[in-house]
Write a protein that binds this DNA or RNA. Structure first.
Lengths: 181, 181
DNA sequence: AGGGCCATGTAAGTCGTTACATGATTGT
DNA sequence: ACAATCATGTAACGACTTACATGGCCCT
């Protein structure tokens, strides 16, 4: 259900095609949700059936035809009702990276550290991309939600980098201890 | 596939029933993965077929019978192979809380703040539970993975609380600004 | 010449959730 | 009396992923 409300949320700002929605998803929401374009297209069809959105077909000559979706009043009220519904704050995380981290004691220490250092590099790149994105979007037409979640994503990534340094030290400590024995 | 390796990882420490695995999952891995017992039982059956685990039926009198699963050599080597396989560091998050946060501008500011404050309370409780868990488990038989991921969970939650305070202030700022106009 | 962007979707499969079912024991 | 703990599972559904398919335009 949350994907449905994510799409409705994006459509409150402006009408968009499935393609637009799927690229926006990738750029803005990576830090808390992911969705493939195939899933988004099918969800939009269901949402149209349910009367939450309407679509207008735009025929194009050089580019493929497209369908522009707009939110309906029904869609707006469903969205606000969901926002107000008591949620349970049970994060349903699926973080494969952390899954691997939780098993790093099964690899030799140098491999474990190499893994963490590679993950650091990825996160550092993500932090830089986030800075670029924020300079382009904030202070000029970003919604409150975008401000809050991009700040959240940034803080979490910086926090991850700090934790990574701590974790690498921790592995080195236990490593030198056991090699003294 | 990750669930499979999570279960194999737990079984490297000691043989366990599906029930045990599912409770351990809830306690230790909430911060990066969730799984219902129904899914775990089915996965264990598939893993036994694939020769990654073996089970031994223990008949009990007062309590229900149980099946104790042990990891096989095949299971161990599959697990290490997965740990070494190049991963893509694409976190596949599904965080319904953040999803709601990203849409808070659709609620009146006081409701948005109330939402964040409730989520703070939940996270504060989670932080306290984490402290209790760590005092019971660390420094006495916790694996490196448990140390690393529980520290990770703790840091992320504390970071969340700080971000929450920032977010509440941010909403109050934009609120007073617009009411001056 | 090859890849990326635009734009849509189908089909098949896997993963994950919810509801239901059983049944004795221990604690409040 | 009622809920929780122990212990397992089936069935039905919904969410999500992966592979495949189309086709022209623009850039290097």
């Amino acid at each position: 259900m949350a994907l449905r409300f994510a799409l409705l949320g994006l459509l409150t700002e402006e009408a968009a095609t499935g393609y637009d929605l799927s690229t926006t998803f990738k750029k803005q929401m990576t830090h808390f949700w992911t969705a493939h374009h195939t899933q988004i297209y099918r969800e939009l069809l269901k949402m149209e059936e349910a009367g939450l959105v309407t679509s207008e077909l735009v025929v194009q000559e050089d580019l493929p035809d497209k369908k522009i979706y707009s939110i309906t009043d029904q869609g707006r009220s469903d969205l606000v009702a969901w926002l107000r519904a008591p949620s349970e704050f049970k994060p349903k995380m699926k973080d494969e990276n952390l899954m691997r981290v939780s098993l790093l004691h099964l690899l030799p220490p140098d491999e474990a550290i190499a893994y963490l250092e590679e993950s650091k590099r990825h996160h550092e790149m993500a932090v830089e991309m986030m800075h670029v994105w924020r300079q382009a979007h904030l202070e000029q037409g970003a919604t409150l939600g975008e401000k809050l979640t991009s700040e959240y994503g940034l803080r979490m990534m910086l926090n991850y980098l700090e934790w990574c340094d701590w974790a690498i030290e921790e592995i080195q400590k236990t490593n030198t201890k056991s090699s003294l024995r």
